[in-house]
Design a protein around this nucleic acid. Structure first.
Length: 871
RNA sequence: GGGCGGUUAGCUCAGCUGGUCAGAGCAUCUGCUUUACACGCAGGGGGUCGCAGGUUCGAGUCCUGCACCGCCCA
């Protein structure tokens, strides 16, 4: 075959992309044993998120490791899935199609919605909404599938899954039921972190703290029938109606005499007790704090601790509920006849009048209005507000602060297992190892069980129903749980055993749980999803625990943590032996790349422009765990390496085409220079392999690159030119060509995990029919020490260094004389210590031939080799 | 406030168990059109390795403190 003249990236990459697909070389072989298999717990990307270079970055890292393991002879289990359930998809559908889910609406089987619809959002039924989600993710998944294929990800596409598909729903619901039966899952009504925009509960892991500007407002809380008062600084005056107690530190000299007394809330005149507790910080505000239901987590703790009444005034959508203040006649009902909250007040008329001004407002507006009102009334505000910044908790995907709302939710018990989970973490090898600390600290800091239920739509349904008694009341305490063999179920359309559809939502009937599972409840099962778990115990046993979990470090507290939890709860096992953590791609200003920052670089044009190999090269330069600033320059460097490999390979293989292949044998390698360079290669392979075994692909690449470029191209190819150019077949030429083939064949394989396209191309020019190799470089063996068997021993250790010591001064002299390296020069005189004399004698002929030196002399010198060049 | 990581040439980063470790690539400068490659080759300039102490015969490398940056948690 004729070698191509130029390196046509696009043609080469498209060609191999097609061929790999046809031949299916990345298939997993289910018949091989566990020992022969390398199992990857691939992260399923969130398909509705924006695609950016960071994706290619961390996903390439997995592929380097996988391709290396494949070449080491491992049967690779490398599945790919799409994380498509959950909020990101809902949000994308809402924005893309301008719709909102309205669960109370009836299903419209003929609904058609097109992108770009203007005007206010169209309300659609829950079923329609889910159908729209299903449609949108098909497109999103196609985009990812194309990108991964183009990038050269060596997935087994037969193992593809999506977290919303039937199989994943089944696995996820089965996990729920098994843990429910084991008593590890429970439901409870209690205050939870609540997002008012998404109107759902969220878990501790989804929490982010943000510094926001705020203000302390100073309110006077009067004592009944007295002119005395205490001043309370609060950042949330709108919660004054929800105040249930006032707290001070028990040792605070200023206030401790008030403990046990009753005080009134300003504006609403509600009597509340003054209590003492260590958690009241004397240095914060005025040292007196009001407890509301609920302003923050401490309120929840005090509320529980002191068994305070519940005065929930914030609705699930973040507006203030209708409440009524009444005079305390001693037998107050908690709720009025119409179901709204009733609060005792010494001045109910005034309280109701003020509350009417904030009723139905969002908390933010209510705060403004209430402060205005307070300022107009003498003796309420003690002094002007002070402006501060403080940390407020947000849902990581939300824009407004979280509220705390008591609701019924499902939980997985994790607080009682902190120690065990830390032990599990220790059994796993973390790469880099310091990442383990992040896991440990996260587990240590857990303060609530894993809230599993989400009041959302596009997710895996929580597989339970509840009976309804004859009074029409839902009996949450006796959930109806399906049998695992009947999974997956949708409680809103499926009917529990023993009931009929007509009984849905009727007295003496049943009702379906409308909530869905936290997306992590499913994602935490990626190992079980891929192994098929209880559906195929033999397969599960063969693949679990897995070998590696590659992922980014920001989701240690979610994905890694929850996966460890599930593996522990179900199997008492670790899910994988290694966690391999990639860093992030930062923009050139070292900011995290994200859609909201507007600094996202989309990947397709980069591959288009530079080629997949170049992009992968850029990823490979970053070590595990290290965040890397985006630098377009690195793609050009990758491209240069590819071009260099192309050209050097073309040269090497052209020489090999000119000689009878029968003559090329390892035993024919006898020239000391050839042997010396082969020994350099040997060292390179040993070190590159050791690095790769430790998942340090970056180090491995650096070593190989250095050998390839500097030793092989710049020196070795140059010095053997006089040998291989000889027209007659001399021993020198046979030795050089044999070595050339041996070394080059190894280099191509060393680079194959990083540059799958160009290496496959080059491989097929010459090596694909070798008996000891495979038609694809990616199925060919990683260079091993055994390949060196049969090559003559190195007689002159250190010969390569001496060679360089002779070459460099001559090159330097020519450059300094501004003449070409090819230009002939008169003479060199070499002085060398006696111990190097023999080596110099061996090398000198090749050196002068390489650098076109007419005459030379060697004489005895002192400590080191010196070369005197006479131009 | 606690934890983790970082601070090495103009830029991006290597430097693993203390002793050829002061490095690479990019950028820059100077030469070289050499029959694999100008996406190349050869060579040069450029850093008191964040700061201050300490251990040691010897410290980017270990210890202590500090400063700054990033992330995580309270």
């Amino acid at each position: 075959m004729d070698l191509p003249k130029n390196y046509d990236v696009k043609k080469i990459e498209e060609n191999w992309m097609k061929k790999w697909k046809e031949t299916g070389i990345y298939r997993w072989d289910p018949l091989k044993t566990r020992e022969e298999t390398f199992v990857v717990d691939t992260p399923p990307p969130t398909v509705s998120g924006s695609l950016h270079v960071g994706h290619m970055f961390s996903y390439s890292h997995q592929d380097f490791i996988v391709r290396y393991q494949r070449m080491k002879g491992k049967n690779i289990f490398f599945p790919i899935g799409w994380d498509d359930n959950g909020l990101p998809t809902e949000r994308r559908v809402q924005n893309f199609l301008n719709v909102r889910c309205e669960p109370s609406m009836p299903y419209d089987p003929n609904l058609k919605v097109f992108p770009g619809r203007k005007g206010s959002p169209l309300s659609v039924s829950r079923k329609n909404f889910i159908e729209l989600c299903d449609q949108v993710i098909v497109e999103d998944e196609k985009a990812f599938r194309n990108l991964w294929t183009r990038l050269g990800m060596s997935y087994d596409w037969e193992l593809e899954y999506a977290t919303i598909d039937r199989h994943c729903r089944l696995i996820s619901q089965a996990s729920f039921i098994e843990l429910y039966r084991k008593g590890e899952i429970y439901q409870e009504e209690k205050p939870v972190l609540w997002d008012i925009d998404y109107q759902t509960a969220i878990a501790q892991a989804e929490l982010v703290d943000k510094e926001v500007p705020s203000a302390f407002y100073y309110f006077r809380f009067p004592f009944p029938n007295s002119s005395d008062y205490l001043v309370i600084a609060t950042t949330r005056p709108e919660l004054l109606p929800a105040c249930v107690a006032v707290l001070v530190h028990p040792n605070d000299e200023r206030y401790k005499q008030y403990i046990g007394k009753t005080i009134l809330t300003p504006l609403f005149h509600v009597p509340v007790p003054i209590m003492g507790d260590e958690k009241a910080d004397p240095n914060k505000g005025t040292g007196v704090v009001m407890v509301c239901t609920f302003g923050d987590q401490t309120d929840v703790e005090w509320w529980k601790q002191f068994n305070l009444p519940l005065r929930q005034i914030v609705a699930r959508n973040g507006t203030l509920l209708h409440i009524e203040f009444v005079s305390n006649d001693g037998k107050l009902k908690h709720l009025s006849d119409t179901g709204h909250l009733v609060i005792p007040s010494l001045n109910p008329d005034k309280a109701n009048e003020i509350y009417s001004q904030i009723h139905r407002l969002y908390t933010g507006n209510a705060k403004k209005v209430l402060v205005e009102v307070a300022n107009q009334i003498e003796g309420v505000i003690d002094r002007p507000e002070t402006h501060i910044t403080h940390t407020v908790r947000f849902f990581e995907k939300g824009d407004r602060p979280l509220e705390i709302v008591p609701t019924r939710q499902w939980y997985t018990k994790i607080i009682d297992k902190k120690e065990a989970l830390i032990e599990q973490g220790k059994k796993i090898k973390w790469h880099p190892d310091y990442m383990y600390k992040r896991y440990e600290h996260w587990v240590e800091g857990l303060n609530q069980d894993w809230c599993l239920s989400r009041q959302r739509f596009f997710g895996v349904p929580i597989p339970v129903w509840y009976p309804i008694n004859e009074g029409g009341e839902v009996i949450y305490s006796k959930p109806i749980v399906p049998d695992i063999k009947d999974l997956p179920v949708d409680p809103l359309s499926d009917v529990p055993e023993g009931y009929k559809e007509e009984q849905r939502d009727k007295p003496n009937g049943f009702t379906g749980e409308p909530d869905v599972l936290d997306t992590w409840a499913t994602s935490s099962l990626t190992p079980q999803i891929a192994t098929h778990w209880f559906l195929n115990p033999e397969r599960h046993k063969k693949l679990f625990p897995m070998d590696i979990r590659p992922q980014a470090h920001d989701i240690i507290r979610t994905w890694a943590f929850y996966t460890i939890v599930k593996a522990y709860l179900h199997d008492g096992e670790i899910p994988w032996k290694n966690v391999v953590l990639s860093g992030w791609i930062l923009d050139p200003d070292r900011k995290k790349m994200s859609k909201s920052h507007g600094n996202v670089v989309t990947p397709e044009p980069l591959i288009e422009q530079h080629g997949a190999d170049s992009v992968r090269y850029w990823s490979a330069k970053a070590r595990l765990g290290v965040d890397t600033a985006y630098d377009e320059q690195a793609f050009r460097v990758g491209r240069k390496l590819c071009t260099k490999l192309f050209n050097a390979s073309k040269f090497a293989i052209m020489q090999l085409k000119n000689i009878d292949k029968e003559l090329l044998r390892k035993e024919a390698i006898q020239n000391p220079i050839d042997i010396a360079v082969i020994n350099e290669l040997k060292t390179c392979i040993q070190r590159a392999t050791a690095s790769f075994d430790d998942f340090d692909y970056a180090q491995s690449l650096m070593l190989t690159e250095e050998f390839f470029w500097s030793v092989f191209c710049d020196n070795y190819l140059e010095i053997i030119k006089p040998h291989v150019y000889q027209s007659e077949i001399t021993n020198e030429k046979i030795s050089a060509c044999s070595a050339l083939r041996f070394i080059h064949r190894a280099i191509v394989r060393l680079l194959a995990p990083y540059l799958p396209y160009i290496t496959e191309e080059v491989w097929n020019w010459e090596y694909s029919n070798d008996k000891d190799m495979s038609p694809s470089v990616h199925k060919s063996p990683w260079p091993s020490m055994r390949e060196f068997d049969g090559i003559a021993e190195e007689k002159y250790p250190g010969l390569y260094e001496v060679l360089i010591g002779l070459i460099n001064p001559i090159r330097k002299a020519k450059t300094e004389a501004n003449i070409s390296l090819a230009a002939p020069i008169n003479r060199i005189d070499v002085q060398c210590p006696p111990m190097f004399n023999e080596v110099c004698q061996i090398l000198i002929k090749d050196v002068v031939a390489m650098l076109h030196v007419n005459e030379y002399s060697i004489c005895e010198g002192n400590e080191k080799i010196e070369v005197f060049v006479h131009i």
